[in-house]
Amino acid sequence: MSSALAADAFTLYGQTFASRVLLGTSRYPSLQSLAESIEQARPGMVTVALRRQMHDQTAEAGFFDMLVRQGVPLLPNTAGCQSVDEAIATAHMAREIFETDWIKLETVGDDYTLQPDPIALVEAATRLVKDGFKVLPYCTEDLVIGRRLIDAGCEVLMPWGAPIGSGKGIVNPYGLRVLRERLPDVPLIIDAGLGVPSHACQVMEWGFDGVMLNTAVSQSTLPPVMARAFAQAVDAGRTAFLAGPMAERDSAEASTPVVGMPFWHQES
C-alpha cells in the first residue's frame, strides 16, 4: 500500500478517528440489533439524539450503558430542535450528561422536508462555538451558508445528500461537487438521504471525508449486515479517491494498443 493511503487520517477539530463512518442510533428493531450494527460498522462516532431519546418512552433500558460499553466516541445531537434557544439548551444538557464538547447541530426549518433552518443554524453555531463546543452543523449543500458556518468557527460541515430518511441518495450532485471544490480544506461529511452503500461509495469517490448513516442501516432488513456493507463501501470509495480516478471522456478510446490493422479492416 502506498504511503498516501497509509497516512490517510480522518481528523476533525484536531482529533483523529478510526473510521470515516458516523452511525446513528435511532429506530433499530432492537438494542441487540443496534449493538451488532455498531460492531459491524466500526464507526468513528455514534450519534445520540438526546432530546428524542429522553422523550421516547419505548426506549429499551440500558441504551446508554450499551453505547458506553461499545467504546465508540459519542456525538450528541440536537435533532428535533426548531429554534436557536432550544438547540443551545439541548447542546448544554448533552455536554453535562456525556461530558463532551462535541455536538452535531440541527435546527429544523421545515416539518415536511426536515430541511435545516440556515439562519437559525448560523446563529446557534456562532453561540455554541463561543461556548467552547466543537460544532458539526447539519446543513444543505448551499455554499454561502457553508461559508457562514465556517466564519462562525465551525471546522466541519455536514451537508445533506437528500432529505433525512428518504434513501434517495444524492439529489443535487452538482451542488455537492461545487461545495467540495470550493471548500477543499474543510472536512465535509455527507449526512442524510443515503439509502444504499453505492451512494456512500460515490460521494467518497468525489472526495468527501465521511458519511453519516442511520435510517439506511436501521430500517434495512438486516441492519448489522447493511452496516458492514456501508463500511466497506466507504473504504472502497475513499481508496478510489486517493488512487486518482481516470478522467471521464466523451468518446471511446481503445484500452489495448493497436499495432497495424487486421486484414479484414484493410481496403482491398
Rank of each mutant, 00 (worst) to 15 (best):
F64W: 10
F64A: 06
F64P: 01
F64L: 14
F64T: 11
F64S: 06
D65G: 07
D65R: 10
M66F: 06
L67G: 05
L67Q: 05
V68S: 08
V68D: 07
R69S: 15
R69I: 09
R69Q: 15
R69E: 14
G71E: 03
G71A: 06
V72T: 00
V72P: 01
V72L: 00
P73R: 08
P73G: 10
P73M: 12
L74H: 01
L75K: 02
L75P: 02
L75W: 03
L75R: 01
P76R: 09
T78I: 06
T78A: 05
A79H: 00
A79Q: 01
A79E: 07
G80C: 09
G80D: 08
C81G: 09
C81Q: 08
Q82P: 03
S83R: 02
S83H: 04
V84I: 12
V84R: 02
D85Q: 14
D85S: 14
D85L: 12
I88Q: 01
I88E: 00
I88L: 00
A89S: 04
A89L: 10
A89T: 06
T90Y: 03
T90W: 03
T90P: 06
A91R: 04
A91T: 09
A91D: 05
H92Q: 09
M93T: 15
A94E: 12
A94Y: 11
R95L: 08
R95M: 09
R95V: 08
E96Y: 08
E96K: 15
E96I: 14
E96M: 12
F98T: 01
F98E: 03
F98C: 02
E99V: 14
T100S: 15
T100D: 04
T100N: 10
I103W: 13
I103L: 13
K104I: 02
K104C: 05
E106H: 12
E106L: 05
E106T: 03
T107M: 07
T107D: 01
T107Q: 05
V108I: 15
V108S: 06
G109N: 11
G109P: 12
D110H: 14
Y112H: 12
L114G: 09
Q115V: 11
Q115I: 14
Q115R: 13
P116Y: 02
P116H: 04
P116C: 09
D117H: 02
D117E: 00
P118W: 04
P118A: 04
P118R: 03
P118I: 01
I119D: 04
I119L: 12
I119N: 06
I119M: 09
L121F: 07
L121R: 11
L121W: 15
V122Y: 02
V122W: 05
V122D: 04
V122H: 06
V122C: 08
A124C: 10
L128H: 04
L128V: 14
L128T: 14
V129T: 14
V129C: 10
V129W: 05
K130S: 11
K130H: 09
D131L: 03
G132W: 05
F133S: 02
F133Q: 03
F133N: 04
F133V: 05
F133G: 01
F133A: 03
K134T: 07
K134I: 08
V135T: 05
V135Q: 10
L136G: 05
L136Y: 11
